[in-house]
């Protein structure tokens, strides 16, 4: 079971000790593992988690390698939120995130590996190559730490700290918050009264409605929170009881026939580029 978010905040236990010519730092990761990592890692490989790659590239750090299947997604993710992808051409592909080429990772000589760790079995192999830090896959929503009572951007600060780019992250956060303030000010008469709902069609075109409280998958929810919009009732409660199958993971499959009952001021629809909207 993935650790609950409020207990999964990475704790920097911070001690430094010289070994093999490198200063080492001990951290406790989201899987409750204590990992000794270099204080200033030179070669980082990301074996799962497009958001990890997106976040690092957006603050100017290009990892040495990443799992296949994510490069285009990173570009798409970053372009979708208006970020700068940077040059990813130097980044090696080390297999698909569920079927990694462990030898390709070893060939890069990493001194740090970052992973979501939700694919089973990885943790038997990756630590044999380099210190491996696991992140809870749900960390990426900017607002989530704050919603769970934690420090805003806590995870992002830890990740940026791993590669010594805290300043770049601060600059990025500053840009985001300035943009947020501008939008909020310009639409102050509308935003507080808006209710929103989000439907994700996925690739099978079974609409999913995400529970506002447990919503985690993308960043939309955090942006909506930051703008001061309210989630519709359906987002928070009704989906889990009346509208369909409860996945107990924050979302439900919903019926197209009931779409009118999801009424909100805006209904956002997430879909893949080539997925049909069908009857929605």
């Amino acid at each position: 079971m993935k650790p609950p978010l409020h207990t999964s905040v990475i704790a920097l236990l911070a001690f430094s000790a010289p070994a093999f010519g490198q200063d080492l730092t001990t951290i406790k990761d989201d899987m409750d593992r204590t990992v000794e990592i270099p204080s200033n890692p030179q070669t980082v490989v990301i074996t799962g988690g497009e958001e990890l790659v997106a976040m690092l590239t957006s603050i100017g750090y290009v990892p040495a390698g990443m799992a296949w299947g994510y490069q285009s997604d990173v570009r798409q993710t970053m372009e979708g939120i208006g970020g700068d992808v940077g040059d990813l051409s130097e980044m090696a592909i080390v297999g698909e995130t569920g079927d990694l080429d462990y030898e390709a990772i070893a060939a890069l000589g990493p001194d740090l590996i970052l992973d979501w760790c939700w694919q089973d079995g990885k943790l038997d192999k990756l630590p044999q190559i380099a210190p491996t830090v696991c992140f809870n896959p749900r960390f990426n929503t900017f607002g989530l730490d704050a919603a769970a009572g934690g420090e805003r951007y806590a995870k992002q600060r830890v990740i940026a700290g791993l590669v010594g780019l805290e300043d770049a992250l601060d600059e990025q956060i500053g840009t985001y918050e300035a943009l947020l303030a501008d939008v909020t000010a310009r639409h102050a008469d509308v935003l507080p009264d808006l209710e929103w709902t989000f439907l994700d069609t996925g690739d099978d075109f079974i609409p999913h409605m995400y529970d506002g409280v447990k919503y985690y998958t993308y960043s939309y929810h955090a942006v909506m929170q930051d703008l001061g919009l309210k989630e519709s009732d359906a987002m928070n409660t009704a989906t889990r009881t009346a509208f369909g199958y409860d996945h107990d993971d924050g979302y439900a499959q919903v019926s197209l026939e009931l779409v009118p009952e999801y009424a909100a001021d805006p209904i956002f629809v997430g879909r893949y580029d080539d997925a049909p909207l069908g009857d929605l």
Binding site: G98, D99, H247, Q253
Partner: peptide, 24 residues
């Protein structure tokens, strides 16, 4: 697999494909 959480379904599908990549 159809109705399960996507992350977990993907994990299960990896095993269903029959792979020795993670054995020791």
């Amino acid at each position: 697999l159809t109705y399960g959480d996507i992350d977990r379904a993907m994990s299960a599908l990896g095993w269903l494909a029959g792979s020795v990549h993670s054995v020791g």
